[in-house]
Design a protein around this nucleic acid. Structure first.
Lengths: 245, 245
DNA sequence: GCGGTATATTTCGGATCCGAAATCAACGAG
DNA sequence: CTCGTTGATTTCGGATCCGAAATATACCGC
């Protein structure tokens, strides 16, 4: 496909994107032959791509049976957020010592953009009207944090943290059925502001603590949403029988 | 090989072990055909194993050129230890709330075992006499921490932390040429004791802070060793030319 | 009808084969 | 002598093929 990359890599990225975007629901069985004709390649690069995804933990691999998109339990989700909280705290602490005025400007822009979308979001009625911009909201959120990662310049931390934030299927679940969590959207935006100001003040310890709390509060926000919707989340394991446990 | 596992998985584990043990030095080029005749299989499972290792970050993959055992820079090593420090701190904090008396007993046994080996180590002259028990020392150290992981019961944290501690080639580099870091061995053992006591006291915050400092001080210990030996560590990239940068 | 066995079908893991990219070697022009 | 070009060799990525494992279906005795 593109210059210098194998089909296996390209395909792995496409499938990965499909998984994290929620297009492929957790529990879905991935058949090698189906994928091979879908991408117009043989099964060889498909298998290599699936190996990669398995190593990344995005799919579970059962010898001689097949692969399934990983379902995530409440405990695993919690753990992923705890890990992200620690890593984000570390990155933010390190960023505090390195951040330049241009970075702060960029961070503020990202913060404003996120605040705007959050406001827009709260002004809409729950349902499809919200769901349609949920993707933008998630992206704007990530954009803010990505500035910090770039400044911190810790590739491993960034990689692991992003992997942790991929562990649940993004935008699909962030849109609840009523207004009950509107204030949490607002809170999120406020936290971004606080983090930026701590960075601007050069307070490494303060920025660190704020970043940690921010991620953990995001988890509680997500948790309350999922409790409401009620089990969008252990996922009934459709056709789990086909791949007997 | 063993019941229910593919050759690709088995081979990946063998190669992984060879890498983390230092048997395969960083920079080594891995040829598919060579490995295939070494394991008496075709290149297909070899490639899948290499994909897995690439996803885990143990080897670097360059399309159409080959794979090399990952060399790790000083910055990357530092980052790996920072990540481990955060994750270990988290696991230890969580463990503080869950730990039972049996666990404390086991932890104390692991601590004593480690202290014994450390003492033995310090009583020996640098060189082969030390190098021969360095593996035991590393294993005893890991054993102590593994008790904490088990108690914390955070599989993802455990997996990531262990992956981070694999990022440099274990026992091979921990043995310096003189007595200059003997006190650091002792310090390490003391820190284990402090962590255990904090856990026994039920102090989550204290245990957390101690665990973090412990890992970071291990890094400084390693750093001083490597500075001495002088460049055991960026690894001259032997036959780097063959795989031109 | 019901449970268990035998057979067919699906799907996977691994081996072999082939074209393409990259490296290496010989060569020749400046 | 150096540098770029061209052809041979190595090594890789991907396609195809085959045997084995697992699942689904058909059959048969009870």
């Amino acid at each position: 496909m593109s210059l210098d990359s194998t089909k296996a890599d390209d395909i792995a990225l496409v499938i990965e994107e499909a998984i994290v975007s929620g297009e492929l629901e957790p529990g879905t069985v991935l058949r090698q032959e189906h994928l091979s004709e879908q991408f117009n390649v043989s099964r060889t690069p498909i298998r290599e791509a699936l190996r990669r995804l398995a190593a990344l933990g995005l799919v579970s691999f059962v010898p001689n049976r097949g692969v399934r998109v990983r379902t995530i339990s409440r405990e695993e989700l919690h753990e992923a957020f705890m890990v992200r909280a620690e890593l984000e705290a570390l990155a933010t602490e390190v960023a505090a010592a390195k951040i330049a005025s241009e970075d702060l400007a960029e961070l503020e822009a990202a913060e404003r953009h996120f605040a705007t979308i959050s406001k827009d979001l709260r002004s809409r009625e729950p349902g499809e009207a919200r769901r349609s911009i949920m993707g933008d909201w998630v992206r704007a959120n990530h954009a803010f944090h990505d500035v910090i990662y770039r400044v911190a310049d810790l590739p491993l931390v960034e990689q692991l943290a992003k992997s942790a934030r991929r562990s649940f299927s993004g935008p699909a679940v962030w849109a609840p059925g009523d207004h009950s969590i509107d204030d949490l959207y607002a809170k999120n935006a406020e936290q971004h502001r606080a983090i930026r100001q701590a960075l601007a003040a050069g307070s490494a310890e303060g920025a660190r603590a704020l970043a940690r709390e921010h991620v953990l509060s995001s988890f509680h926000m997500l948790e309350s949403i999922l409790e409401q919707v009620g089990g969008t989340w252990p996922q009934p394991k459709r056709d789990a029988a086909k791949l007997r446990a």
